[in-house]
Amino acid sequence: MSPIVFGSMRMSQDKGDEEYWAELLRQAYHAGIDTIHSSMEYDSFTLLQSTLQRLSKIDNSIHFKHIVKLAEPHFSNDEYSSNRLNEKVNSYLEALQVDKLEAIQWMWRSNLSDQKRVVNFTKQSKQIKEGIDSLKRKGLIETALCFPYSVEFMRKALKLKVFDDFCVYRNPIEQEYDEILSNCKKGTAVSIRPFFADKAFVVKEGPIKLLEYNFSEPAIRSTILSISSLSQLNEIKGFLNAKASF
Rank of each mutant, 00 (worst) to 15 (best):
N83C: 03
P73G: 03
Q49T: 01
P3D: 09
K65P: 01
S50M: 00
S91E: 12
K199C: 02
R117D: 03
E19A: 05
A95D: 00
L211I: 09
I33T: 06
G16L: 01
L210R: 03
L55H: 03
I62K: 10
S231N: 11
S50H: 01
N183D: 11
I4W: 10
K69M: 07
I67F: 10
E130N: 14
E87R: 12
E130P: 07
A144E: 12
I4M: 05
H74D: 14
G7Q: 08
F6I: 01
E212R: 13
T223N: 10
L158E: 06
Q49H: 02
L160N: 06
V118H: 04
G16K: 03
C184G: 03
E19W: 05
K15T: 04
A197C: 09
N111A: 08
I173W: 11
S61K: 14
M11E: 01
L158I: 14
C184R: 14
F153D: 01
Q124N: 13
G32F: 12
S44E: 00
L47D: 00
F6S: 01
S226D: 14
S150A: 15
G16S: 04
F163P: 02
D198M: 04
E19D: 07
R137Y: 12
E217S: 13
H63R: 14
V202H: 00
T188P: 11
D34C: 05
R26D: 01
P3Q: 06
R170I: 06
E87V: 11
K161G: 04
Q175W: 09
E176T: 14
S216K: 13
L70V: 02
D198F: 14
E87P: 07
L24D: 02
K204I: 00
D78A: 08
D14R: 09
V151R: 13
Q175R: 15
K57P: 02
K69T: 11
I224S: 06
D178H: 11
S81L: 04
N60M: 04
E205Y: 12
K100S: 09
L140Q: 15
S39L: 04
T223M: 13
I173T: 15
K159Q: 14
I227L: 06
R109Y: 14
V5G: 08
M1P: 07
Y169T: 11
W106N: 01
Q105A: 12
I67A: 01
F75A: 09
K57I: 07
Q175D: 10
D34V: 09
A71S: 12
S231V: 11
L140E: 13
I62N: 07
S134T: 15
Y92A: 01
L70E: 06
E235F: 06
K100E: 15
P148F: 09
S2V: 09
E72R: 03
I67P: 02
F196Q: 08
F201N: 05
F121M: 10
N77M: 06
D78N: 10
Y20M: 04
E205W: 15
V203W: 08
S182F: 07
F246P: 02
G206R: 12
D17V: 05
S81T: 13
I128M: 04
E87N: 12
L225K: 01
Q105N: 11
I132N: 05
E205K: 09
V202A: 04
S134I: 05
Q53G: 01
H74K: 09
T122K: 14
R137E: 13
K138C: 07
Y92T: 04
Y213V: 00
Y29W: 15
